[in-house]
Amino acid sequence: MSKNLADSLTHPIKDKLQDKLNNRMPDKIELFSRDYYAACTLGGIIACGPTHSSVTPLDLVKCRRQVNSSLYKSNIEGWKTILRTSGDSIFTGIGATFIGYSLQGAGKYGFYEYFKKTYSDLVGEKVANNYKTGVYLAASASAEFLADIALCPFETIKVKTQTTIPPYATSVLDGWRKITAVEGIGGLYKGLVPLWCRQIPYTMTKFATFELTVSKIYEYLGKPMDEYTPLQQTGVSFLGGYIAGIFCAIVSHPADVMVSKITSEKTADESIGAAISKIYGKIGFGGLWNGIAVRIAMVGTLTGAQWLLYDSFKVYVGLPATGH
Rank of each mutant, 00 (worst) to 15 (best):
F98K: 04
S86W: 10
G110H: 04
L122C: 06
V55W: 10
A128T: 04
I76H: 06
N68M: 08
R34T: 15
A39M: 09
M25V: 14
F91H: 07
D27H: 11
N68E: 15
F91D: 04
S33T: 11
K116E: 13
Y114K: 11
E77K: 01
R65D: 04
T118H: 12
Y114R: 12
T118N: 04
T41R: 00
E30D: 11
K116G: 02
G95K: 00
S70Y: 11
T81C: 05
T56E: 12
R84N: 14
K132S: 14
S33M: 04
E125V: 07
G87K: 14
H52C: 11
V127D: 01
D35H: 09
Y36T: 03
I99W: 06
Q66W: 05
K73T: 12
T85I: 07
Y119W: 00
T56R: 09
S89N: 14
K73G: 15
I29C: 07
A39N: 03
A128R: 02
R65G: 01
M25H: 01
Y36I: 04
Y37S: 00
T92G: 01
A128N: 04
T81H: 12
K132A: 14
S53L: 13
V61K: 02
G105F: 03
N129L: 12
Y112L: 10
K80Q: 11
Y37M: 03
Y36W: 07
K126G: 06
L58P: 00
K62E: 06
F111I: 06
G124R: 05
Y109V: 12
Y37H: 11
K117L: 07
V127K: 08
K108V: 08
N130S: 15
T118G: 00
S86V: 12
K116H: 05
N75V: 08
S102W: 12
F111S: 07
S86C: 09
K62I: 09
S120T: 13
